Simulated assay, not measured.
Amino acid sequence: MSLASQNNRRPEQLYPHSLYRRASESTDDSIDERRVAPVVDLSVVIPISERYDDVKELYEAYKADLDGTNCSYEIIYVLDGQYAEVLSTLKALLDEGEPIKIIRFARSFGEATALSAGFANSDGPLLLTLPAYYQVEPGAMTRVVDALEQHDMVVGRRSARKDSGFNQLQTRVFYRVQKFITGFELHDLGCGVRGFKRQVVEEVFIYGDQHRFLPIMAQRWGFKVVEVDLPQSSKDRYRRVYRPGVYLRRLLDLLTVFFLGKFTKKPLRFFGLIGSGLAFIGAITLTWLLIDRLFLSEPLGDRPAILAGSLLIVLGIQIFGLGLIGELIIFTHAKELKEYTIEEIIN
């Protein structure tokens, strides 16, 4: 059974939001029906950045797949920069009456920003992100949309990998690193096929390159996230080799996600632990030197350990102070922060 027809529920029942109210159901005759956004079950966001395949060919493949979901849908293309050829193709599709919307940035702002712009300009209670290049075989959209009946977010995992061994090695290494840092088992964060309910993107804010880690952040916030195996496209054979700086940035982004998810409202636990540890090591070092001086008559003037111990104590106090300042900031804005998700209220 498709999501749109389950229990004859309308989209506004799946996600009660005033924007999803049909114009014909409005009791206010003063509302201009042309100004009320049409209701769709599914909003599809496709960011266009550095890598993309034949836009028209891929659009037709996606459209055929989306038609199989039995959901009404809209497709939103977000051009992260100036892509004149892509824009021309999309305008031609729009002129042909295709259900697409085009958003173009004045310059490149990053894929996370492109996705956020697509979400903000979409109407559906359900969202689906797709890559601008081949990643999975046809039929994947139906699996993702069906899985959203029981979960808040669905993450695609390319199974039966057909790309190069180097790509697969990168994926496995990154999976082990992110599992070690976050504790979550998500095997293919590089897959761009993801589905989620609108509440996820309204509750979880992404920026920079953190769109890759949206499933981890959603799990931190208490949303139900599931990974679905999708057959990898035979055309997804592009060997991805990045500069060392790219790998470093992704590792730093992963550490950022870990910190934001675990210590956002408890900065003193993070900085206090590090600062206390450094200060303790410095204190032990100076104590040992003091014992040597008092009981063994060892000179201190030519021992660099005394400088190292003193620096560790000062550094530890400074880091601990950062944690205290963070706690003061959190305390000041505590009422504005929210790190939970209500699944149901029963009266």
Rank of each mutant, 00 (worst) to 15 (best):
A4S: 15
S5A: 08
N8R: 13
S18T: 12
Y20P: 00
S24K: 13
S26D: 14
T27H: 14
L42C: 10
I48Q: 09
Y52C: 05
Y52V: 04
Y52N: 13
K56V: 14
A61M: 13
K63Q: 06
D65F: 06
D65N: 10
N70R: 11
I75Q: 03
D80H: 03
A84G: 01
K91F: 00
I100R: 10
I102Q: 04
F105E: 14
A106R: 15
A112Q: 06
S122T: 11
T129W: 00
P131I: 00
P138I: 07
V145H: 09
D146Y: 04
E149P: 00
H151I: 04
R157D: 04
S159D: 11
V173K: 09
K179A: 09
F180M: 15
L186T: 05
D188V: 03
V193Y: 12
R198Y: 06
R198H: 09
V201N: 05
E202M: 10
V204F: 02
F205I: 05
Q210F: 01
L214A: 04
P215E: 02
I216M: 03
R220G: 02
W221N: 13
V226S: 05
P244V: 08
T256I: 01
F258L: 03
P267A: 05
F271L: 08
L273G: 15
I274K: 03
F280W: 11
W288A: 12
L290N: 10
F295C: 03
F295P: 02
R303Y: 03
I306C: 07
I306P: 00
I313D: 12
G326L: 07
I330P: 05
F331A: 14
F331D: 12
T332D: 08
L337Q: 12
K338I: 09
